[in-house]
Design a protein around this nucleic acid. Sequence first.
DNA 1: CTGGGGTTCTGTATCGGTATAGTATTCCCC
DNA 2: GGGGAATACTATACCGATACAGAACCCCAG
Lengths: 370, 370
Amino acid sequence: MPVPLGFAEEPGQTRGMSRVTLQTIADRVGVSRMTVSNAFSRPDQLSAELRGRILTAADELGYAGPDPSARALARGTTGAVGVLLTDSLRHAFTDEVATTFLGAIADELAPTGLALTLLSASEQLGMIPARDVPMDGAVVYSCNTQSTAVDWLIRRKLPLVFVDQVAVPGIASINIDDRAGARAAAHHLVDLGHRRIDIVTKIRTGPPGILADPFAAGGGHVVEQRMLGWHDALEAAGVRPRVVQEWPSDVGLGDEAAQLLLDSGDRPTAVLCFSDVIAYGVVQAANARGLRVPEDLSVVGFDDNPLARRMRPALTTVRQDVAAKGRAAAAALTAAIGRSRTGAGTRVRHLLLPTELIIRDSTTKPCALG
Amino acid sequence: MPVPLGFAEEPGQTRGMSRVTLQTIADRVGVSRMTVSNAFSRPDQLSAELRGRILTAADELGYAGPDPSARALARGTTGAVGVLLTDSLRHAFTDEVATTFLGAIADELAPTGLALTLLSASEQLGMIPARDVPMDGAVVYSCNTQSTAVDWLIRRKLPLVFVDQVAVPGIASINIDDRAGARAAAHHLVDLGHRRIDIVTKIRTGPPGILADPFAAGGGHVVEQRMLGWHDALEAAGVRPRVVQEWPSDVGLGDEAAQLLLDSGDRPTAVLCFSDVIAYGVVQAANARGLRVPEDLSVVGFDDNPLARRMRPALTTVRQDVAAKGRAAAAALTAAIGRSRTGAGTRVRHLLLPTELIIRDSTTKPCALG
DNA sequence: CTGGGGTTCTGTATCGGTATAGTATTCCCC
DNA sequence: GGGGAATACTATACCGATACAGAACCCCAG
């Protein structure tokens, strides 16, 4: 039944300017407050006739149903789950990998009726969403572990799922095989004959530029794993890559990074990139310098972002099933929530999804061997 | 200060298996519960020394800060705002217009520290997010007005902003000039000399196919306004379009719609589309039939989706500034929330953002006149 | 010595529900 | 006709905080 708009009455003016609550209705109908509560939340607990009268009275009074906050306090559930994102929420909507992931979560969550709350890990005005927003559980997505936001979630003892995060006992986690994927990518270049191979990774600390210690922690679990994977294959081939760090940006590669990478004397014949977005930037920068990809420079991405297929040349990359990751995360979260409600139950799982090298048109033999 | 992970203690086992609350800390430190509350929420209300002791004790007890649900009930604010979306939340992440809009909202909301809750208008398991999820206000985005979800929001007397919705007194609204935009699009085709022009609109009711009464309500405000705009220009030119309704889908045009539109005897020379996504489908369907765009068929979209620029031929379309719409919506929402907190204040605003015809390569003179 | 004005902390009354145990009443069946 | 179980509703006790009006204390001017 469509609810009447009710602009006739001034807001909150119904009798003595106090709000309509269960008690208001109870008084009106002449029953206890509890019975009114049941009329809304447990229809089987009272006669249909009385329930009808109560609902009618509630309607007349402009009651909008049990107050969600009060109900949340009394019941201990809110009907919403969070997704904690590293920095700006904007990223959640602009990055195609993120949208795929979140879309899959949304899909998987749809039948549960849970709402999805996007939480920024950054603090504003003394408000820390991870600490202050009511929710029944959360997915931690690609957050620097150093973020205190994650710690707040843990302290709250919320059911959690870590995604792209180092696995922690007691907390479900979903990861992809970053290391194997990176290894395959590097191996591919080595197999093609490349020996001058550089790496462009996501920025971790300090300005864009060459990284003194590629293995220093701080870039997050994914950065570290991919770094390990690349080195696995490169070291075996005796290749010592330079590692340049750069912001992923959809306009291209930063000047500093591009110069360091492409304008130096010993320009690489191939570049391994942390993401397809970064790879896109590298290709742009190369083209801007008159270098052809892949003839003059082979480029490998990571993720198999839709962008990788759209690019010209189509990007060789490491595919991860982001949608599957999202679905798994949502499933793990609902499982964790169920677990926390019913006491113990199934054990928490740590999932590792496979990765796969997709060879397209951005890689070929190095020039000298052509 | 980074919070210690605290896996050492079993969850909830700290003393008698009861949860740590303000009272627990108060007892431990030997102060009143209120003072502990102040230590967290109003630091200026107690001495720094005592506050330090309280915070330390809280830390030792593994307290995660005031319970958000309880605080929400007592304070009347939750720290999250909702966005009500028509059907599947998935749409929020797959449609580029939606992601642009939501990204802009997220950006504008960032400095306020509010979290963003995505709400599906559909009901699942007796849970209606619009009615049951705690929030401080909401943006209603492209929802069928017939949706009861909107009515729940209204009943809750939440601060609201309607986007792409018929304006209602007392509720802020953000719209674009759909009618003028559609009129310009149709005018463009008429100017080029087209007289056989059809329309493909979003589905409203019933199966895909030709719409008996294009002006019947039910497709939502935007559909109606654009329909009016197209007819403004077409009628003036004596053109009687057929109106085909179709699902926006990124794989192409549905078979039925495509057949009706392109395989009939009196095939149109131009098509006006409700969205760029639908226009994309029309172009695909035309190409599949060996028709060239724009030589054999001119196609006009709506929105200036990024897709429009990517398409070949680049799509002639009506541009709307989706990001501006998002920013305006967020600003209007925070204003509305402020208004509801401080009693009355500034008046609610009804914004109408301009639209602009962008002529690209998908439209030209009709063949016969070539 | 008195009293106004700050701090600092406390007591009490909500905030608006839900859970659980309990009381009538009715129904049913042997 | 009496015991046992439904059915329909109520009483009480939380859920975990915050608001607001004091109360105790200290400092300093008059």
